Amino acid sequence: MMIQQITQRLQEVNNLLATCKQDSITFEQALLLSLFYKDFNETNQIVTEAAAMFHDDAEQLNEISFSLFSKAEKFLSLDNLGLQSVDFEGIFNDHLKPYEAKYEEAKDISTGLWREYSAMSNRLDFLPLDSEDYKSLDPLCDAKKAEYDTAHARVNLLYNELQQERDRTFCVYCFKPVFLSVLVERLKGISGSIISDIRRMKGDAHE
Results as ranks from 00 to 15, higher is better:
Met2Ser: 06
Gln5Met: 13
Gln5Trp: 07
Ile6Pro: 04
Thr7Asn: 10
Arg9Val: 13
Val13Tyr: 01
Val13Gly: 01
Val13Lys: 01
Leu16Pro: 04
Ala18Thr: 14
Ala18Asp: 13
Ala18Phe: 05
Ala18Glu: 14
Thr19Pro: 01
Lys21Asn: 10
Asp23Tyr: 05
Asp23Ala: 02
Ser24Cys: 10
Ser24Pro: 04
Thr26Met: 06
Phe27Pro: 06
Ala30Lys: 04
Leu31Pro: 00
Leu32Phe: 02
Leu32Ile: 14
Leu32Asp: 09
Leu35Glu: 13
Leu35Tyr: 01
Asp39Ile: 08
Asp39Phe: 05
Phe40Val: 11
Glu42Phe: 10
Glu42Trp: 08
Asn44Met: 09
Thr48Ser: 06
Ala51Phe: 04
Ala51Asp: 08
Ala52Arg: 10
Met53Pro: 03
Asp56Ile: 12
Asp57Glu: 12
Asp57Asn: 15
Asp57Ala: 06
Ala58Pro: 02
Gln60Ser: 08
Leu61Glu: 05
Glu63Gln: 15
Ser65Arg: 05
Ser67Val: 06
Ser70Ile: 11
Ser70Asp: 14
Phe75Arg: 00
Phe75Glu: 02
Ser77Ala: 14
Ser77His: 11
Ser77Val: 11
Leu78Gln: 15
Asp79Ala: 03
Asn80Leu: 02
Leu81Asn: 09
Leu81Gln: 09
Gly82Asn: 08
Gly82Tyr: 08
Leu83Arg: 00
Gln84Asn: 08
Ser85Arg: 10
Val86Tyr: 01
Gly90Ile: 11
Ile91Ala: 03
Ile91Gln: 05
Phe92Tyr: 15
Asn93Glu: 15
Asn93Ser: 07
Asn93His: 07
Asp94His: 12
Leu96Tyr: 05
Tyr99Thr: 13
Glu100Ile: 09
Glu100Pro: 04
Ala101His: 11
Lys102Glu: 13
Ala106Leu: 06
Ala106Phe: 02
Lys107Ala: 06
Asp108Ala: 10
Ile109Ala: 02
Ile109Gly: 02
Trp114Glu: 13
Trp114Met: 10
Arg115Val: 06
Ala119Met: 07
Ser121Met: 09
Ser121Tyr: 11
Asn122Gln: 09
Asn122Val: 03
Arg123Ser: 01
Leu127Lys: 05
Pro128Trp: 00
Leu129Ser: 07
Leu129Asn: 07
Leu129Pro: 02
Leu129Gly: 05
Asp130Thr: 14
Pro139Tyr: 05
Pro139Val: 10
Leu140His: 00
Lys144Gly: 00
Ala146Glu: 15
Asp149His: 06
His152Gln: 13
Leu157Tyr: 08
Tyr159Ile: 04
Tyr159Met: 03
Asn160Glu: 13
Glu161Thr: 15
Leu162His: 06
Arg168Thr: 15
Arg168Phe: 09
Arg168Asp: 15
Arg168Met: 12
Thr169Met: 04
Thr169Gln: 01
Cys171Trp: 04
Cys171Pro: 04
Val172His: 00
Tyr173Leu: 07
Cys174Ile: 09
Cys174Leu: 14
Lys176Cys: 04
Phe179Leu: 11
Val184Cys: 03
Glu185Ile: 12
Arg186Glu: 15
Leu187Ser: 05
Ile190His: 00
Ile194Asp: 03
Ser196Lys: 13
Ser196Ala: 12
Asp197Ser: 03
Arg199Trp: 03
Arg199Gln: 12
Met201His: 03
Lys202Trp: 03
Lys202Gln: 09
Lys202Ala: 00
Asp204Val: 09
Ala205Asp: 11
Ala205Gln: 10
